[in-house]
Design a protein around this nucleic acid. Structure first.
Length: 337
DNA sequence: GGTTGATGATCCGTGTCTAA
DNA sequence: TTAGACACGGATCATCAACC
């Protein structure tokens, strides 16, 4: 839970509280879905001639955003690494299954062998069938699409119909619906996709200014953030080895002024980010407090209901006892006669 | 059209952590 | 102690834009 911007890089991640620990099935399925949607989205985009020539996007940022919207609170690095590991295991199992199929059942299927046999075969010991099926859905379809796209001479990938979703059609239409929107005017020449995924609250600044962190929910990176602070796995590994080629060394007064204005601009961005962070923290705190109050109320009402129930029960027992006593007395009287 | 550099994606090996 | 899962980083490949 302490994986924050400190080791994630992107300042849009500053407010995200990434979950740590093992991936559960639900998270894994969300990740697979995210990758599937990402593939569809990219195929669609590649097919659009107007989208050609634009810089490659930060696909794992998009995946992270998708995951967050679906309750999987992981960072893009975590998603990337998990996907790496998933693919590694998946390919092992797939190859094994192919071998089994080729040999016509001389060997038992992966799903029929126990943990030790899996280990002996250098196979993952606990790949779940649901995960495998979902991966087949994503990987095989992707392979088919790519083959189809490369097969036609000069045919664009737009001709390839995107795969249908495993789980959700609504999510697909939701996401693709946003993605199929015409691209906005590009002031920042990098990724547009994540910013389109969620309806952004009205920005506090003029549109031409570098965007700051929205103050409501965890939101996808905006353009300049992804371009300047993007944290794709490749970049995170390459960062620190230099760069900064935009910093001119032949400084004059004009350059100094530019630097000064850039610094003040950055300072205002940071201040705005901190302010929105604090606002959000406060709002979250209020939400937590109100939730706790609500919980207390519910527990109190529950206790009250229990009390009333017990009282009613006691009353009923008392009445029953009285009735029995009265009945017994009546019987005594009638027998003594 | 070929070359080069930047960037992103993926593969792979290995370290670290945690639960059994 | 050990196995499994996560995390990290290097290596490599693919793609794209800029340049000649």
């Amino acid at each position: 839970m302490d994986l924050t911007m400190a080791n994630q890089g992107g300042n849009n991640n500053m407010l995200r509280d990434y979950r740590k620990g093992n991936w559960n099935l639900q998270e894994t399925m969300v990740l697979i879905e995210a990758k599937k949607m990402d593939d569809q989205r990219r195929m669609k985009r590649v097919g659009e001639s107007s989208e050609r020539g634009k810089p490659a996007e930060l696909r794992w940022k998009w995946v992270e955003d998708y995951c967050w919207k679906n309750g999987c609170l992981r960072s893009q690095n975590q998603c990337n690494d998990k996907w790496d590991n998933l693919m590694r295991d998946f390919k092992k199992v797939r190859e094994y299954e192919r071998r089994v199929a080729e040999r016509g059942g001389e060997e038992k299927s992966y799903w029929r062998i126990d943990k030790n046999e899996r280990k002996d075969n250098n196979l993952p010991s606990n790949m779940l069938p649901q995960i495998y099926e979902a991966l087949v859905e994503v990987v095989e379809r992707k392979g088919q699409r790519e083959a189809a796209a490369s097969g036609g001479a000069g045919s664009s990938r737009a001709n390839v119909v995107p795969a249908t979703s495993i789980v959700e059609k609504s999510a697909a239409s939701h996401v693709l619906g946003h993605l199929s929107m015409p691209p906005p005017v590009q002031q920042y020449p990098i990724i547009q996709a994540p910013a389109m995924l969620l309806p952004l609250p009205p920005p506090a600044q003029a549109p031409a200014e570098p965007p700051t962190i929205p103050s409501s929910q965890p939101l996808p990176a905006s353009d300049s953030e992804t371009s300047e602070y993007s944290d794709s796995p490749a970049k995170r590994r390459k960062r620190g080895s230099g760069g900064g080629d935009g910093e001119g060394t032949s400084g004059g007064v004009g350059t100094l002024e530019e630097v000064g204005s850039a610094i003040s601009k950055s300072a205002s961005i940071i201040a705005e980010a901190i302010r929105s962070c604090e606002e959000r923290e406060e709002r979250r705190h209020r939400e937590v407090v109100s939730l706790q109050q609500r919980r207390l109320e519910i527990e109190e009402s529950k206790a009250e209901m229990n009390r009333q129930g017990i009282n009613g029960l006691v009353d009923a027992i008392n009445k029953l006892a009285n009735s029995i006593l009265a009945l017994a007395a009546h019987k005594d009287q009638s027998t003594s006669k």
